[in-house]
Design a protein around this nucleic acid. Structure first.
Length: 800
RNA sequence: GCCGCUGUGGUGGAAUUGGCAGACACAAGGGACUUAAAAUCCCUCGGAGUAAAAUCCGUACCGGUUCGACCCCGGUCAGCGGCACCA
């Protein structure tokens, strides 16, 4: 009988589909397991093998869990709003709705061809009005709770896509979508006050099981620092200049102050500043600098001294000059700093350039050469002198400042508020109405969803205006509050909106009266295991935790953290070892692989190709190795014997393999799990036959990886349905052989190998080693200094 | 610059976390079967060395701890990822 995957695979896919084999049942009395993979953006190019690897990990875990008796929710959906679809629509003239529907069809057929055990009755589509009704609902709840605001600021603007981008979407000064240089533009935009949740997001990390580097990246992104706010009085007008510093202990070393060029105090006192023209010119110059210049060409410090404002150091009443410089940012802290050149690298550079004195207050470095940022004894610091560590010095100075009422401890976060809007068509409309009388008014809840109007022309407006702004019938409306003429907001939400809560919708995807029923949420949450890409750790993962935490705070969800566990898979690189990309032409289409080798081979290969969490290059020839493996499994049917249990020779091997495969799957070590099954197969081949009991165990272990072939073989031999059976168990006591081979070392070098009973004591092992013919002559005539024995492993004899 | 990760045969990668380095595969070479090829099966496969063994050497580099180090410690180099004038 030949292994004909082309017949087998569609047959079982049809069976699972018709029998709803993988349907999750809300409220079932079985233990629940919610495994989540990041839903795809349905692009026109279709899926690539990276998607397959990303889903195969939890696919294996999910199938194993079902065999273990769990009620598993393993859903899939589509994150379908976004620029590429809209750009395709503009180029081809086909409506984004149609483009999206076609792409979803394509993705669905690809996913089904691979045989993933998704619950297809729970598919969500973020562009479906039944879905985005609730995206808008969450937005309005945030609006109601003061987490939504509008502000006119400098924003990251992509001149090519003509949209405002968040910091997250413009990392490195490049547009995330088209890679053009980002420019700074002043615009009134929507923000979500995510900074209000900075501390909650940080603390929440303590209660979840995320990979350590994922936690770390989130912590760095939130960027909490502890320090102090200190008020410096301005000599000329008595005003207070508030600064933030992490080093209040160096307060006696302050020799100048720096404000950001946009600091409001300059505007406020422009009449009393003598060189205001010079300051204005400097400010203009800074505004013209691109993101690149501001961040990459960091070494050269520039700035201008403010003539007419002088600060007084609150701790010793020294007069201090004030400068403006673009190395101080308006968006962090208070937009002004106290500069301590002796102990801060940037201040040191600035002081040197402008000839400002440098006062050492911590001993330990050579401040004539460079700033000293380490710890040491305090000097030149009044009451702080003699303190030898930073912690004590900070505690002391804070006490002094508090007593004087000029300073206090404080914290700061690097994370900024979330710029929450796009000037594009293909996104969720922001449900807000601008009324000349009432201001910003929320669209009433019973009018949701606020539908995207059908349009012909999706081209964005010239100065970054949404295409919606051109549609009079959409824009003109009545104010929900006063009934007068009003205008609708025309911006849409960013792509991250829909994906910030999709895992909640899966719990109850067709609910019309809530984002999901409280019962369903209570039953399924939290997600037990979430796997996805590292690239989403600082964006999607933070955003969705923020939304979820907010929903928890208003009582809409029952748990504070959405994901109990988070892991990440590594990329699949092209055969040339570089990241797969369309422009490089090294993308591998999973459809081609399924057609030529079958879905099972593809599934086994993406998990066998290397460590699941590391990147690995695609290799066509390694793929063939996996094909051979499955063909040899298939051939086992020809050497089947009638025994139900394990054969004596292979019993320990089977128990051990079951143990290893079970443990490896839980740790995402799929490559070694498959290797263990290959080893077992080699042992079976050497023996020449397989018992029914052995075949059943092997097929069950392999089923999560290669479900079609194992289902078919199981059906042929045993007549039932494998995915309805139970996972294999093992007996720890039966994992060991009666005899084990141990190694004998002389002075740490392997000199002999011998067999001993596996329960031999240390003394018995040493005795056996010394009696060994190879060992004897090497020990004879020498003094034995030490004898070490490790049970079941080795004996080491140290001689002189 | 700061933070994190990684460095093992021709290749992808193993090594129960201090106990036989190179599991399992791929590629390569040799052989069997075949008129031939493909497929399949068998053998070899880190380097030096030998007729074959023995025996050295070998986990990026230098040093340390240990009976014993890919694993732990100190230093150096290289690659990847994140953040980046964050006060």
């Amino acid at each position: 009988m030949k292994y004909d995957f082309k017949e087998i695979e569609p047959k079982w896919q049809k069976y699972w589909d018709e029998h709803e084999s993988f349907k999750a049942e809300t409220g079932s009395s079985k233990p629940k397991f919610y495994s989540l993979v990041e839903f795809p953006y349905p692009s026109g190019a279709g899926m690539h093998v990276g998607h397959i690897k990303a889903y195969s990990g939890l696919e294996v875990v999910s199938r194993k869990r079902r065999l273990e008796g769990y009620n598993v929710l393993f859903p899939i959906g589509f994150d379908a709003y976004g620029l590429p679809t809209e750009n395709t629509a503009i180029k081809t003239g086909v409506h984004p709705r149609t483009v999206t529907d076609n792409n979803i069809k394509k993705f669905t057929s690809q996913l089904r061809k691979v045989g993933f055990s998704f619950d297809w009755s729970r598919v969500v589509d973020t562009t479906d009005e039944k879905y985005y009704k609730w995206t808008q609902w969450i937005f309005l709840k945030m609006f109601e709770n003061g987490l939504v605001f509008r502000d006119r600021t400098l924003v990251n603007y992509c001149p090519s896509c003509k949209v405002v981008l968040s910091n997250e979407d413009s990392q490195g000064g490049k547009c995330d979508v088209c890679h053009s240089d980002i420019i700074q533009k002043e615009k009134e935009v929507w923000y979500l006050r995510i900074t209000e949740y900075a501390d909650k997001l940080l603390q929440g990390l303590d209660s979840v099981d995320f990979l350590p580097n994922i936690k770390l990246q989130q912590e760095n992104w939130i960027g909490k620092s502890t320090g102090a706010f200190v008020k410096f009085r301005i000599k000329e007008n008595g005003e207070e200049l508030k600064i933030y510093t992490t080093r209040p202990d160096t307060l006696y070393g302050v020799t100048f102050m720096v404000m950001a060029p946009e600091h409001p105090m300059i505007e406020k006192y422009r009449d009393s500043i003598k060189n205001i023209a010079e300051l204005d010119a400097y400010k203009d110059e800074c505004a013209k600098k691109s993101e690149f210049e501001r961040t990459q060409l960091v070494k050269d410090k520039t700035g201008v001294r403010i003539d007419g404002l002088t600060a007084i150091n609150p701790i010793n009443d020294t007069e201090i000059p004030i400068y403006i410089s673009d190395y101080v940012m308006m968006g962090y802290g208070t937009g002004a700093i106290m500069a301590v050149p002796a102990h801060d690298t940037r201040d040191y550079e600035f002081a040197n350039k402008f000839g400002i004195p440098i006062i050492e207050v911590i001993k330990g470095g050579d401040i004539s050469k460079e700033a000293y940022t380490g710890d040491g004894e305090m000097v030149n610091s009044g009451e702080l002198n003699g303190i030898t560590n930073k912690k004590d010095a900070i505690a002391k100075v804070l006490k002094v400042l508090e007593a004087k009422g000029v300073g206090e401890a404080g914290v700061q976060y690097k994370m900024k508020d979330w710029a929450f809007n796009r000037q594009r068509y293909w996104g969720e409309p922001i449900p807000i109405v601008h009324c000349p009388k009432c201001g910003m008014v929320a669209v009433p809840y019973d009018e949701l969803p606020l539908r995207l109007p059908p349009v012909e022309n999706f081209q964005p407006g010239q100065d970054g205006e949404s295409p919606l702004a051109k549609i009079e019938s959409f824009v003109n409306c009545k104010c929900p509050k006063c009934g007068g003429d009003a205008k609708r907001e025309t911006d849409t939400m960013p792509q991250w909106a829909g994906s910030s809560w999709y895992f909640l919708r899966y719990c109850d995807p067709n609910n019309d009266s809530a984002l999901a029923s409280p019962e369903a949420l209570k039953y399924w949450l939290p997600v037990d295991w979430y796997n996805g890409g590292m690239e989403h750790v600082t964006r999607h993962l933070i955003y969705s935790r923020f939304w979820h935490r907010f929903l928890y705070d208003i009582g809409a969800v029952p748990v504070p953290e959405p994901y109990a566990k988070r892991t990440a898979q590594g990329l699949i690189l092209g055969p040339d070892g570089v990241k797969m990309s369309k422009s490089r032409g090294n993308v591998v289409d999973p459809n081609d692989v399924v057609d030529e080798y079958g879905a099972d081979v593809l599934r086994v290969y993406v998990l066998f190709m290397g460590d699941y969490e590391q990147a690995a290059p695609w290799s066509e020839s390694s793929l063939k190795g996996c094909k051979r493996f499955l063909e040899r499994i298939w051939a086992l049917q020809d050497t089947l014997t009638d025994d139900d249990g394990y054969s004596k020779e292979l019993s320990a091997a089977f128990h051990r393999t079951v143990k290893k495969v079970s443990a490896d799957i839980e740790q995402l070590k799929f490559n070694t799990a498959i290797a263990a099954m290959m080893t077992l197969l080699n042992q079976i081949s050497d023996k020449g036959s397989i018992t029914k009991g052995e075949l059943k165990a092997l097929l069950t272990m392999l089923n999560p990886f290669a479900p079609h072939i194992t289902e078919e073989m199981y059906h042929n031999v045993f007549g039932g349905i494998l995915s309805e059976q139970s996972w294999v168990t093992y007996d720890e006591a039966l994992c060991v052989e009666d005899e084990v081979e141990i190694v004998v070392q002389i002075n740490g070098k392997v000199r002999a190998k011998l067999n001993v009973p596996s329960e031999a004591s240390q003394d018995e092992m040493i005795e056996a080693a010394l009696a060994n013919d190879t060992v004897k002559p090497l020990v004879e005539g020498k003094t034995i200094v030490k004898k070490i024995a490790v049970p079941k492993k080795l004996v080491n004899i140290v001689v002189k």
